[in-house]
Amino acid sequence: MKASFAQVLCMDGAFALPAARLRYNRRQNASVGTISMTDPSSQAEELEIQFINVSKAFSGRSVLSHLNLAIPKRQSIVILGRSGSGKSVMLKHITGALRPDRGQVLVKGRKPDRALMESIGVLFQQGALFDSMKVWENITFSLRDVEGWNARQARDFAIYLLEQVDLAADVADKFPRDLSGGMAKRVALARAVSTRPEILLCDEPTTGLDPVSGLVIDTLIRRLVDQFNMTCFTITHDLASAQRIADRLVLLADGRIAWDGRPSDFASTDNPDVAAYRQAVSQAHV
């Protein structure tokens, strides 16, 4: 049986470093105990991401309009929508890259800032791997300064993470240009979870991938989210991918939430926006 991420961090002296241990302990303590769903204060604490009456416009064009969304901890939510529906704008509000014109976005109960990014991992649409660095350097980029690892320790840790995304150890010494699209996306996923984030943001995770690679990425995201107890916020226009990743599906249309529910209900709902989306998807496939 594979050792968990955290076990590896702590069982080997090389990785049992203060910052890593602190993060792990914090996560572990956070998951201990049960939270009463009837207690409103506990319920508020349980929420990881909140959009409260958020509106955003660019050059007079409304992109998000009075949007309300509450995402509990450890939920994998997928925002579906056509291009220009406001998905990316939502994601950028979570990272703090954009600020709402009206309303507020809260992540872990506060406005997004630089410090909060420590607990967020991002899987970018094109992977966004650093061309000039080897794969292991990419994966441990944000860790080496913090943990004080030398190159060997960092490379060993990167190899462990590569195993988590089903990649062989020899990939560690390759450059991103030597990887296929699917492999690069898996490396990017390993990098996104390298800091053991509490929240994973995925921007169109299957874009540009063939169906098989897309399936692999979705499976890996789902597996890592469950394994590391992360809250996962994914934006995509790929319905099949959304069904595989999501605990909860949200359809965004014209900057508002058109439908919010379980993935299994998406196919059967008679919501007109959902029907229009399903039709658009089927036409695109034809």
Binding site: T95, M117, I120, F124, Q126, A128, D131, T195
Partner: peptide, 14 residues
């Protein structure tokens, strides 16, 4: 790096 989101990725990694 900017157009391929690498700079944004760097910012996301603090």
């Amino acid at each position: 790096m900017r157009v391929s989101d690498q700079i944004e990725a760097m910012q996301a990694m603090i």
